[in-house]
Every structure is written in C-alpha cells, then in structure tokens.
Amino acid sequence: MSTNTTTRRLTMAQAISEATAQEMARDPRVFVMGEDVGKYGGIFSATTGLLDQFGPERVMDTPISETGFMGAALGAAAEGLRPISELMFVDFFGVCFDQIYNHIAKNHYMSGGACRYPLVITTGIGGGYNDAAQHSQCLYSIFAHVPGLKVVVPSNAYDAKGLMTTAIRDDNPVVFLYHKGIMGLSWMSYFEGSTNEVPEEQYTIPFGQARVVREGSDVTIVTLSQMVQKSVLAADRLAAEGISAEVLDLRTLVPLDRAAVLKSVQRTGRLLVADEDYLSFGLSGEIAALVAENLDTLRLKAPVRRLAVPDVPIPFSRPLEQFAIPQVDNIVASVRGLMTFKLD
C-alpha cells in the first residue's frame, strides 16, 4: 500500500459493499442478487448503497428461493456473467446445497475444464448475539470440504475489501463468509479491531496468504474471522503475563496457506487453533493434521490444542451460548495450559 493513498476507517460491511460497487463500476458483467439486497441493502449491510448506484437490473432482490437463485447464478455465470449471490445466513445452505456442492463446485471439473463459473456466494456467519442454532453457525469447513469452492473468511475491513475484489475477479466459484459480529453493524455489538483503515482505491489480496496479525515467539494461535479479534485481545492479556503469542489469520481456507502455519509453529513449537466452527471433522482438525504430518520438520513443545464449538448446536440462552462459543478467556486459558507442558 503506497503512502499517499487516501484511507478512511470503514466497517467490514462498508468495505465489502465498496469492493462490490467498485468492481461493478469496472465490470458490467458483475451483478448482485439475493434476499433483501436491494432497498434494504442486505440484512448485514453487505450491499448498502448498491441499488441506488446501479439500479434494480444489477442489484436484484430475489424471492426467498435459494435453490432458484443459486441455480440461476450458476446458469448466468455459465453464460459469462459474474453474479454475486447472497445467502443471507450460512445456516440456510441446507435449502440450496445441491446447487452449491453438486453443481457450482463440480461443473468445471466435470466439464474437464471446458466451462467456467465465475460467481461469488456471500453469506453471514457466526453467533454471539443469541440467534440460536439455525442462525448462528459458521460452517465454513463444510464448504471447504467440498472440492471446487474457494473459501474466504475475512477478519477485518481492509482484508475484506481486498479479498472481495479478488473473489469477484476469480474465474472460480468463491464462497465469501463474513461474520456478523465484525461487520460493524449499528445494531449488534462487534469487535472494534475489525473496523480499520481502508484505501479508497481498488486493491486485491491474493487468496492463500495468511497474515501474521501479531508476532510472537511462545505459541502460535491459528485462527480466522471474528476469532482473530478475540485472539488479539487474548494475546494482549497473555503478553502482560510474559507469554508471547503469535496470531495467524488464515483469511482463506481454500486455498489454505499451509506454509505459513508450519513456518510459525516451527518457530514457536506450540499450536492453538481457535475456531468458531464445530470441533470435530473440521478446520481445527485439518490444521492439527497438517502439523502432525509435518512433525519431521518441526519440534513441538506441547501437544496441539483446539478450541472450537464442542459439537453441540449453538444454544440460545446467553450463558449457554457464551459457553459453547470459544471466548477470549478460553483462548487465554488454553495458551496458559500449553505453556505448562515440557515435551522432549
């Protein structure tokens, strides 16, 4: 980023809609569709202002008909357009997953590379505001599990704008998952670290490049999305205790920056995965497996630890939900625990 660039503090929601608007202005093939993306501007404000700027032909409110419009996004992408299709809550993937995992993800492969489907699925993820089990999940691991989808999970406004621009320009299907609790909404408390300085001009951030949010030498916290902000707060507290935690923001799951994870763990010798998705068979296991498969290149000073939702649906009641979703306290405690080991 050059020094004479004009920047402003933007929320992640503003950054996403700005990236979309700038790309729509640059490329007439780009259009947005989804539930309440027009006048409402997106339930989580990811499309605010787009209708006024581009009109209803390019910012299309859809019926509550996710199979219909996800399939239509695929069909339009096959014809050379570049749809951005919003799935309001990721939890709603169940009503349209056939279009996503059987078609959007696989058609390029099944065509032997002959057909391309440049489209972006944007979707809101995450809990922490008592919306219960059908409106609070993360589920990015499910999308990452299916071959053929790129999976982007930003933690802050600057990254969100650059990654969204990259997503729209990518010739592959990209699932772009934004955590509601870092969008900077005026009606939901959020982690302020997610609102940051964002250049006015367009820029791209390549997929598959994790970011060291905070350098450290004792332990690596591999994380993403809202949990990055929690991990930074935890790292502050740990620093006061003399523990130096490195926070690594994966930013994209597909492609996954495996080298960055290994490089950091090689240095620190300790790994905590801080994740808001379900514990079993998901991201945290994938990162742990990566380290296990590379034990010939690194020496662990403690067993790998995973923090994630302990395989329960997200509960409604505040104390229940706060228990189920890993919090700053849990990250601090887990790192402290890691520091007590002495492996030879």
């Binding site: 032909e57 199979t67 219909g68 399939g71 695929l74 069909g75 992408a77 058609n107 032997g112 057909c115």
Partner: peptide
C-alpha cells in the same frame, strides 16, 4: 458439457430448471 452449443445436463433430478433460468436471465441482461 458442450459450451460451443450451450448444452449441459445434470444427474440431480430437477436441478437444471433454476440453471436454465440463469441462462435466460443472462440473455435478458446481455
């Protein structure tokens, strides 16, 4: 899949109908 003549198909029953809507939407937009 034969993009030269804009043909595709799917093994999932009913899945093609929304996709045809997308192609039609593209024609309209273009």
């Amino acid at each position: 899949f034969d993009p030269a003549v804009k043909f595709s198909c799917s093994g999932i029953v009913g899945a093609g109908a929304p996709q045809a809507c997308g192609a039609a939407l593209a024609a309209k937009k273009l």
